[in-house]
Design a protein around this nucleic acid. Structure first.
Length: 506
RNA sequence: GCGCCCGUAGCUCAGUGGACAGAGCGGCGGACUUCUAAUCCGCGGGUCGGAGGUUCGAAUCCUCCCGGGCGCACCA
């Protein structure tokens, strides 16, 4: 069982009170260390006044050794005030899990594929696609932390109209000519022209290396052209019909918003929708319990398409999940810039990382909820980087590293309390104890922004503790060193989830 | 017209049923012979877009309205 002191306490109280309940941290210190609203929830079913139920639960809770006293407050909250012994035991439990604290929350392990970025290799990755990677990778890391097995995949089109225009643009540059109508422009086209061979794999290699620098690692790549080879065998398994010379999927009958063309009327060539079918089969037949698509909000119209394909082919649509995120808007000195790869005025991920650094870039792009549009003022990005909260969190980690460097070798392991705990110490322990719930909620919601928000709170509580109390050579040194170590691990775990480094020195 | 998302402090945003709504930035004022001041403390700042409804309780759930973004291809 992974360490989760709050859950354990809730379970103990639930057993004593005879009702399932959850504990929350009240906003006000005078409302106790933890509180539960379970009496309010039970009032209807039990047909008793909530305060009466609350009083019974409070009495039962007072029988526990961890509980110093209780209060029934407001309409029927039960407020719990805990003994120092509980804090020492909680910290001990957290430390007992070592660097793994916060992990292993999954009840049963799944094989998960996260397919992300998947931008066609017609140019370097723009910041807008980087959000896809930052978001998808953060969700992937949350799955991993919970104990699931995750593979990250990149899917791209290596044939078709876009790629033809891209290749033609590079060829034109090699001949010293202007790019064709609707072709691609930009310095990177000339860079590719200077090299030999098909520019598509060259471009893909550059994209991969940008993403590696961004700390998004792909386990595999899939090409549309190879998947299309399976279509003759797969299309007959779908619910289809002929109309105006084209082959249509009757996807609207299976939960999609409309029917989709699979084979074009002109030459019976497959659309990308047809390749989607082959790709979905390819994913699910590889044995993934869950196939996750990470898509920008401009693709929200296709949200139901994948589930419809799964249904038509007889797969459980629950295995297919589409995560949407809103777009990134770039402004320059307050003015909106429209981004177009073809015009070559995009802000590329590499430039963005050069400007503000990898850590700030990752933090910036997962800091906000996926449903929230991100506004980035490129002019302010560099300046703002020094004010980015990511450094505040990293600084807490580095500060602790400094303390641990100066600590005597034999100082660890004991959590003996020399004197009563100070409020800052109790607050910090409670904060660290939140990690399992924070990670679980972020995963359930597919909302990794909860992690950086929590990390700021941890750093906050630590910096305050640090300011008020000396660790080394204090009466409370043993306990405080343990507290520092646990805090450092929690921050390191949070930073890892976001894709940010945890520095030993700053 | 239809669909998805958003509207919370001057700005950028957390907060998906609980007790007087939070943070960062910006503004003002304090704290370093000390384990890292990239820190800490204080002050100022809000009809949670609007109106109804559900509930003991709503920023949060439902309905309508008003703003904004993004879609609605035999492009990907």
């Amino acid at each position: 069982m992974p360490a989760d002191p709050v859950k354990a306490l809730a379970a103990a109280i639930a057993a004593a009170a005879g009702a399932e309940l959850e504990l929350e941290r009240p906003g006000e210190a005078e409302h106790g260390d933890y509180a539960t609203n379970v009496a309010l929830r039970l009032a209807g079913a039990r047909r008793k006044p909530p305060r009466e139920i609350a009083a019974e639960i409070a009495t039962a809770a007072e029988g526990l050794p961890a509980v110093e006293r209780t209060e029934v407050a407001g309409p029927g909250f039960v407020n719990l005030f805990l003994r120092d012994e509980w804090f020492a035991a909680a910290l001990s439990e957290i430390l007992g899990d070592g660097a793994a604290y916060g992990s292993g929350g999954a009840e049963r392990q799944e094989r998960v594929q996260v397919e992300m970025v998947s931008a066609n290799p017609t140019g370097p990755i723009p910041v807008s696609s980087a959000r896809n990677g930052a978001y998808g990778d953060a969700v992937a890391r949350l799955f991993e932390l919970a104990g699931h097995e995750v593979e990250r995949e990149y899917y791209y089109n290596d044939s078709g109209g876009q790629m033809d225009r891209f290749r033609a643009s590079v060829e034109a540059a090699r001949r010293g000519e202007e790019p064709p109508e609707d072709g691609y422009k930009g310095a990177y086209i000339n860079d590719l022209a200077a090299l030999k061979g098909d520019p598509v794999p060259l471009m893909l290699k550059e994209i991969e290396s940008s993403l590696e620098r961004f700390r998004v690692h792909f386990d595999s790549f899939r090409r549309q052209s190879e998947l299309e080879l399976r279509l003759p065998e797969l299309l007959p398994r779908l619910d289809t019909y002929e109309k105006e010379g084209a082959l249509w999927a009757r996807s609207s009958a299976h939960g999609d918003d409309e029917d989709r063309v699979l084979l074009r009327s002109e030459d019976r060539s497959p659309t990308y929708r047809a390749a989607d079918v082959a790709y979905l089969v390819d994913k699910l037949d590889r044995g993934f319990d869950r196939a996750i698509y990470v898509l920008g909000a401009d693709h929200h119209g296709t949200r139901n398409w994948y589930a419809a394909v799964a249904r038509m082919l007889g797969y459980d649509p629950e295995r297919v999940e589409v995560l949407l995120y809103q777009l990134v808007h770039l402004t320059k000195g307050g003015e909106q810039t429209k981004m177009s790869k073809r015009r070559g005025d995009v802000v590329f991920l590499d430039d963005f990382m050069d400007e503000i650094g990898v850590d700030a870039a990752r933090w910036y792009l997962v800091n906000r909820g996926p449903d929230q549009t991100i506004e980035i003022d490129i002019d302010l990005a560099a300046e703002r980087s020094q004010k980015n909260p990511v450094y505040y969190v990293q600084y807490a980690h580095a500060r602790i590293a400094g303390i641990l460097r100066n600590a005597p070798d034999n100082a660890g392991n004991s959590l003996l309390l020399a004197k009563p705990l100070a409020p800052a110490e109790r607050e910090l322990v409670k904060r660290l104890a939140e990690l399992p719930a924070v990670a679980a909620e972020a995963l359930t919601k597919r909302g990794p922004q909860g992690v950086p928000t929590y990390a700021i709170r941890v750093a906050d509580d630590f910096h305050r503790f640090y300011h008020e109390h000396r660790v080394l050579e204090s009466e409370q040194q043993a306990f405080r060193l343990g507290l520092c170590l646990a805090t450092q691990r929690v921050i390191a775990t949070c930073l890892h989830l976001v894709g940010v480094e945890a520095p030993e020195r700053m």
